[in-house]
């Protein structure tokens, strides 16, 4: 009937509004739930979520070795040309030529942190770091070379 529907409508609306009000009152009175990070003050204790992506880095081990084979899969996967792989040919002890990276150039100013290069990498050579204080005074400083000078590929990574 019309009138019962109407009354049901009114009470249903009141109930649902009450649910919302209850939730916000809970947050209003429970200040320990506050999620604000007071960033520059809490730099020492700042904890970022696991999935936060700041920039692409190439991890090196203590012998200054990385895992990059220079396959350019990351360069192909990148949607906006952030990564440029410059390859060279090393001579192996057996006298064979082997492809390796000279420089892996990374343009931070173009990067959107989409993670596609990390997914595309077959040898897990690059990963996302959690650094985020990227401001510099000169744009050219944002163009980075990811492999350290004098580094070479790790044993057994093909």
């Amino acid at each position: 009937m019309f009138i019962t529907d109407y009354i049901k409508d009114v009470f249903g609306a009141m109930k649902s509004l009450g649910t919302g009000l209850k939730r916000t009152l809970y947050y209003f009175t429970h200040h320990k739930e506050i999620i604000t990070q007071q960033y520059p003050d809490n730099r020492a204790t700042l904890v970022l979520p696991d999935r936060f992506k700041g920039e692409v880095v190439m991890p090196h081990d203590e012998k200054n070795e990385h895992r990059c084979t220079g396959c350019t899969a990351c360069e192909l996967a990148c949607p906006n040309g952030t990564i440029k792989v410059v390859t060279k040919f090393d001579i192996t002890p057996e006298g064979k030529k082997k492809k390796a990276i000279d420089k892996l150039v990374y343009h931070l100013e173009l990067c959107t942190m989409c993670n596609l290069c990390i997914v595309a990498c077959p040898s897990d050579a690059i990963k996302m770091a959690q650094t985020f204080e990227h401001s510099v005074f000169d744009r050219s400083q944002l163009t980075k070379v990811l492999n350290k000078p004098g580094s070479k590929i790790m044993e057994g990574v093909e």
Binding site: T24, Y27, F28, H31, E33, I34, I35, T36, Q38
Partner: peptide, 10 residues
Amino acid sequence: KVAAWIQIRL
């Protein structure tokens, strides 16, 4: 202040 506390902010 009320807005901040309701939205779990400071």
